[in-house]
Design a protein around this nucleic acid. Structure first.
Lengths: 149, 149
DNA sequence: TATTGTTATACTCTATAACTATA
DNA sequence: TATAGTTATAGAGTATAACAATA
């Protein structure tokens, strides 16, 4: 069972709060660039891959039909392009266009600025400590199974 | 300007990653209860308030017209109720029903479970340290203004 | 006149189900 | 037959603009 303690509750609250403010920052960057948060994520994924539609949908946790619409709209804006797979004529690969690459770069810089208010209150040592703790918290290796102990 | 350093970039990456996994956890809890993430937030806000529509919209960062629809759907499900303000006949107050209160309580417990995988990799001392760092990072008091230095 | 909230309208995101083309 | 992707359809979330009721 999950213990209910004051300290843990405070941490949960802050993790939730941090999630909302950082997601709000990302949403703001998205809309300032005429993108949805999902499209922002999609561009981020495409920066170093040219996945199939199904792979992309999988990474974003979406249905393939949803993917078609998202890719349609980004393609109409000239940010990405589709191409038929050479291996399998049924499959479609998605890639950033030059314009899409440029936008993705600009967004990366904007995200850095958007996150600055959360980074700058911490000195360098604290930043490193936070980095370590978040890394450990996120570590998927030994994600505790939901068994009671 | 915002410095681009390896250490800071790693922290930004992790903050973004943490935001996505925690939001995913909250989204999962939401959908398991037949709610959208926005409705989850709305219930959370209403746990200790009976705000006006405009106040609620403001807290959620939404337009008042959007608020009408969200409240409509939650009201149809019997989770919240509307009442005309005694002070101002134009204003509508929103409150949780008994059913809404109960659901909000259940959700609180579910969120605790959903966040456990991120809490449990840390020992108690680390949890306290993370709590302190997040608190400092989030501290709104001296949010650095966007001036260059 | 100004403000509170709703309604009308439109677009994006999302899913399910049916479909087309290829394997 | 099975798989990859698209299309048709429907509902929720969102915003803008117009509106009704009240201040």
């Amino acid at each position: 069972m999950v213990q209910k303690t004051g300290a843990t509750d405070a941490l949960i609250d802050e993790m939730g709060q941090m999630a909302f403010v950082t997601m709000a920052a990302l949403s703001r960057v998205s809309s300032e660039n005429g993108l949805s948060l999902t499209q922002l994520r999609m561009l981020g994924i495409l920066r170093d891959r040219e996945p199939r539609m199904a792979d992309l949908a999988n990474r974003l946790g979406l249905e393939k039909s949803t993917m078609s619409g998202l890719v349609d709209r980004a393609e109409q804006r000239g940010l990405i392009s589709r191409s038929v797979s050479e291996d399998d004529a049924r499959a479609t690969h998605v890639a950033l266009t030059k314009k899409g690459q440029q936008l993705a770069s600009e967004i990366e810089a904007q995200v850095r600025v958007a996150f600055a208010p959360f980074i700058e209150p911490l000195d360098e040592k604290e930043q490193k400590k936070l980095h370590k703790l978040l890394k450990k918290s996120l570590s998927p290796e030994e994600k505790v199974s939901q068994n009671e102990e």
